[in-house]
Design a protein around this nucleic acid. Structure first.
Lengths: 347, 347
DNA sequence: CTTGGCACTCGACCGGGGTGAGTGCTACGG
DNA sequence: CCGTAGCACTCACCCCGGTCGAGTGCCAAG
């Protein structure tokens, strides 16, 4: 058993991975030897395949079937063998066109992105919206709905709107609210959200000292409105039914597991968050996700960013048997376009 | 073959429907005769069952299996045999508690409702948000994001926030926007949305006559912001993976179809919309939905409303083999609670 | 009209033989 | 020492026939 991978074994591994990706059937020595006319007899290929299995790149479902790649096999393929298939101009155009009708509000853009990802990859698209911490203050507004109930609307510089109804207990006079709106909009405009929060805290302390109860309450209101949202709500998924067409999900039990993950979202949040902290393209293969419920699945993700840094991540989830060479450029280009669209907002 | 349904046939039909709902297995004459000690021999039951089959209430999957209810059978059961199992105080309380933490913004309430529906019924919950036409003007706000781009925020009386970014082409001065905000908020407050639209149209005509280009543009802006949204986006679904546990969906192909429907939503919009136009509880059984993709499924829906009329509908979707007696009260009570919560907003 | 009896039907389950793809091993030749 | 050809072996898959049993339909008796 050769320990190292020479050129030949790599070629053969590549052939097997690609055949398996294309056919979803275990691939045998003969088909490798024939289809990829590399001048080797099936017997030779067999020897190599036995080595590859020994090294953990391949596995056989049972004795007389062919071999299928393991997670490690896919990983090696992706890291060292894979050739990206760059997008054709026409495909790039198709991605861009997707956003033509959107109004460039960040959630609109992301919604289009997730649709586009799922449509192009023919798997499920997932997008994680930026955490509100990453935004910049643009505008705040208080709308009294009823005595003791105020709707607080917060707008970030990128046009994202977040709103909350807050029970104030007491009835805040419209004049105070208006005054405060003007003040906050003047002072906070353009500041990153965490700075805004700090400032609000400082001012609250001051208002407290001055026994300005009303002002303190309104400030508290703004603070509450700027609090973070449920993380799970920030994930968009689309095209999950695409995955159902894949032969590996003919088994009902696996489908169930997968759909539970989609519905629950927290595991996806975890992965997308890990991806966000990295930079650029990230690929999780099978058990590398360390979520056994999505065993057999891979995630291809990329980060999108503005000049102020990475703000979120997006990608595609599908079976590990995935044409990475095609999916990666799709994810990559989508992330670029999204970054670009959001960047334009920032001027 | 008796044409009419006498007391005995009804009892037997009831027994069969209920056994089948409980077990998901075709039910035979013997089990009916034994389990529901009605003093009839299996043979007699068989005769009756043959009649019921002849009348279209039952069907046999194959010669030597028992009988299962047809859509018509379920319909008869629901219309004339069904006894509702009223909610226990504890269950009602559980439903109410669900909304305790919500901030009573309409979309929050509906999101809680859909969760609660799916959790209690153990099927998928669906909710359709009111169309924006049904709302009442409360507040509008223009936030200039960049030269030529304005974010328009519209708030309805029930605290629903809708926002749109609009490309204005030219740069509208902040002063004009502010002036217009004040004007609209003063004049339109409390008017139903269609009236607001009319008024805007009238004022636009007037502005045109007076060659007040700026004002005309801002009015156009408001008009655009009040335009309806994508209908499909107004449907919430949750708990779809509950349905996967049902034995009737062991077949992968059916699951696929169903999930396509969930993802596409338009067929659900259609049904919920039909339900909204009716009043109170509505039940669609199997093919009555006239959407063949959800054959074998039933929908139990109810409308929620304020004193100004029905505004939306919500319900549960699951297999036709559904314990209607339990599901109907859940849906009914949820609709009541939602109505009540929204009503409170209106004061 | 009800009931017991009985033959019949038909899917589910089981076991066995045949088939074929694919393997591992071994012996041979460059 | 490496590549190749040959060969026996393995094992999933398919098809077949037989058995089993639940449930029916029908009939004749009460």
């Amino acid at each position: 058993m050769t320990i190292s991978m020479n050129e030949r074994s790599r070629k053969i591994l590549e052939a097997i991975v690609e055949d398996y990706i294309a056919s979803a059937e275990p691939v045998g020595s003969k088909s490798v030897s024939c289809r990829h006319q590399m001048g080797l007899s099936p017997a030779t290929v067999r020897n190599v395949m036995a080595d590859l299995e020994g090294m953990g790149y391949l596995a056989s479902p049972h004795a007389s079937a062919g071999r299928i790649p393991t997670d490690k096999g896919y990983r090696f393929y992706v890291d060292t063998l894979l050739q990206l298939r760059p997008l054709k101009a026409e495909e790039r155009e198709r991605i861009e066109r997707q956003y033509a009708s959107s109004d460039r509000r960040i959630d609109e853009v992301l919604r289009e992105a997730v649709k586009s990802l799922s449509r192009l990859s023919r798997y499920a698209g997932i997008v994680m919206a930026p955490r509100i911490e990453a935004t910049v203050f643009r505008h705040i507004d208080f709308v009294p709905l009823a005595p003791g109930r105020v709707l607080v609307i917060f707008v970030s510089r990128s046009g994202e709107v977040q709103n909350k109804i807050i029970e104030t207990g007491i009835n805040l006079p419209a004049a105070t609210l208006e005054q405060m709106t003007n003040y906050l909009n003047r002072v906070m405009n353009g500041l990153p959200l965490d700075t805004v929060r700090e400032k609000i805290a400082v001012e609250m302390a001051q208002a407290k000292m001055e026994h300005d109860d009303l002002q303190q309450r309104v400030l508290a209101l703004s603070g509450q409105a700027l609090a973070g949202e449920d993380e799970n709500a920030r994930v968009y998924i689309e095209g999950t039914s695409n995955i159902l067409d894949q032969p590996e999900f003919a088994d009902v039990e696996r489908m169930r597991q997968l759909y539970r993950v989609f519905e629950q979202k927290s595991q996806l949040v975890d992965l997308l968050d890990r991806s966000r902290r990295a930079h650029g393209i990230q690929i999780f293969i099978g058990n590398e996700t360390s979520h056994s419920a999505i065993a057999g699945c891979s995630l291809v993700t990329a980060t999108y960013e503005t000049r102020e840094g990475t703000i979120g991540s997006l990608g595609v989830i599908g079976p590990s048997r995935m044409p990475y060479g095609q999916v990666i450029p799709i994810v990559d280009y989508t992330a670029r376009i999204v970054s670009q669209l959001l960047e334009e907002e920032y001027q």
